[in-house]
Design a binder for these strands. Structure first.
Lengths: 216, 216
DNA sequence: CCATACAGTTAAGTTAACTTAACTTGTCGC
DNA sequence: GCGACAAGTTAAGTTAACTTAACTGTATGG
């Protein structure tokens, strides 16, 4: 089974369910999926039943959905598509850091494996996307990095930003405006969200701090 | 109304119905659409009713479908998408002449207007795609060329190839193999499909000759 | 001018995906 | 330990898109 055999909706669900737990968070809820896809909880519930029937995940009412090995493999293939496309859009078509996500969400359902192979080659097999998220290899394996932690839970000190979450476009734009992007150095004071980003003093709320992962 | 508001199926129908008459051929039939989309005549019939209801075309049973002004505008927007994408794939991603069509058919439903604007700029606002088909401008107007005719209906002599039809992938590959592509010079003898392409003698059947348009 | 072949249509049924409405479950504060 | 409320589910209905089966129009050759 390949991602091309899945419906657009199935592709979206697998990617989002997998991504929700990428950094150790608890499994995404029915409500969370409904918000993510701007639909009703009822619709999510029914769709999860269908995906269970298709063997992509295990879903028992009132339990969180759990990806099967097949579901996980396909989810990671979707994540690879998304992140490779983000990298391509930023590098070759001049997309701004906060514009790549939406376009990648459109293209990830459409491009062929040939297209992916070509852009992977043009980019020189990149290991991370513009937000710092690792790009899985074609065989599902992962590039290796040091350990990371959320900026919200790290002791005061200086850190190198590795990753900025791209799930909330609004938030991403705010973070981009204060210069927060992979590679910059930030210093946390521990006091109330006051930090310096590339030398400039800024203040971030806890949610914004949680969207930034740094090397520890 | 924009192309993004249409279903994928509606986008396909408008593009194909419009394209069928691009070079003066009669309107495409129900059967023709069914073959083009690998579906049943029944399905085509029902879909045409739906598109009529949506005001995209006029459809009366046993009459050919006729695009409304709105339908035509959207059809041309889809043609622009398709051909711009073909040009982009060939020029920047090393797609072979006969590979671009299939990938463009996937992408044309997915890319945003921003994406189109960017690739149009990268390509320097091209007037033709890799098969020699004209690319409509964003406002629906057309680049100007000299008159063309099918190679099958032209008197013996030498001509410059302007366009090679891409609707049949198999045929396109055959024509590519004998060196038939936009820009080359061909000489017809009038005898039985015997012609020279860029100096080399080859023989083409009438259907193949009909797929090639030359400057007259 | 009419029988017939085939193009075209209608009808009925299916599936994925969605909605709204009504119901159930689970958990948290007291 | 229980009541209330949020989360979750089920049910019923809708729509686009598809299929198969059966029927209808139409154009053409004899």
């Amino acid at each position: 089974m390949e991602v091309g055999d899945l419906s657009r909706v199935a592709q979206d669900y697998l990617k989002v369910i997998w991504s929700a737990s990428e950094w150790g968070e608890p499994p995404i809820t029915t409500k969370g999926l409904a918000e993510r896809f701007s639909t009703t909880r009822a619709n999510v519930s029914e769709t999860l039943h269908r995906l269970d029937d298709q063997g992509l995940l295990i879903y028992r009412p009132y339990r969180p959905a759990l990806l099967t090995p097949i579901g996980r493999r396909l989810a990671i293939a979707m994540v690879r598509r998304h992140r490779l496309l983000e990298a391509y859009l930023a590098r070759t078509l001049g997309y701004a850091w906060n514009e790549v996500h939406d376009e990648a969400e459109r293209l990830e359902h459409a491009v062929s494996e040939l297209f992916l192979a070509r852009i992977d080659e043009v980019l020189g097999h990149p290991a991370i996307d513009p937000h710092g998220d690792p790009i899985p290899n074609a065989d599902g394996s992962w590039p290796q990095f040091g350990d990371t932690a959320e900026l919200s839970e790290v002791p005061p000190g200086s850190y190198v930003v590795l990753r900025v979450s791209d799930t909330d476009a609004e938030q991403l734009l705010q973070l981009a405006e204060v210069g927060m992007r992979p590679g910059v150095t930030v210093t946390t004071s521990g006091k109330d969200g006051a930090i310096t980003v590339a030398g400039k003093a800024v203040r971030l709320d806890p949610e914004q701090l949680g969207a930034v992962r740094v090397l520890v």
